[in-house]
């Protein structure tokens, strides 16, 4: 982990999540997983945060709020997208009100796949995000991220329902 990024302070925003990812994220803070080992603090407000952890898909109603929370974080900052919904919209993809993944609104730094992702995976994602934060503090531009390939695609609508 980059020396400069030993204190990633996290703010967590639930976009449209079913709460599965949120429960797993909170599990990271418990004695079992202890995110504070990596200097992680759950600060609960964007003004103090370096890392924005997003769960759930982005829809018309919450895109604005997500954008606001992101804008209120001081630079440099990174975004961690938890779960399949944040990369594609998950099971909500294709709903009339859903845009899709978080990258439609914000530049995402780390995608953590899973439905929900395991706490170990989340911790790994936050540590990777911290490394990218360190790079940003040094003034480097970290390489662009790829979206998880195995994103869930909605099944075709059965013939008889058409």
């Amino acid at each position: 982990m980059a020396k400069l990024a030993r204190s990633p302070w996290v703010v967590h925003y639930n976009c449209n999540s079913c709460n599965g990812c949120d429960i797993e994220f909170l599990a990271c803070l418990t004695p079992m997983y202890d995110a504070e080992r990596f200097g992680v603090l759950h600060v609960g407000n964007p003004k103090h945060a370096d890392v924005l952890v997003v769960t759930g898909s982005v829809n018309h109603r919450n895109a604005r709020v997500l954008r606001n929370v992101y804008d209120q974080m001081p630079d440099p900052k990174v975004v961690v997208a938890l779960g399949v919904c944040t990369s594609s919209g998950g099971i909500f993809a294709g709903c009339y009100n859903v845009f899709g993944g978080v990258e439609k609104v914000l530049p995402v730094d780390v995608f953590v796949p899973g439905c929900p992702p395991r706490p170990e995976a989340i911790l790994d994602g936050i540590v990777k995000a911290a490394a990218r934060l360190g790079a940003k503090i040094r003034g480097e531009t970290p390489p662009p991220v790829e979206k998880p390939k195995a994103a869930f695609q909605p099944a075709a609508v059965p013939e008889e329902k058409k």
């Binding site: 964007p46 003004k47 604005r64 709020v65 997500l66 606001n68 209120q72």
Partner: peptide, 14 residues
């Protein structure tokens, strides 16, 4: 300058 924290629900966006 940033707006105050109002749970992201600030009117007028940025």
């Amino acid at each position: 300058i940033r707006p105050p924290y109002l749970c992201g629900e600030n009117v007028g966006g940025t």
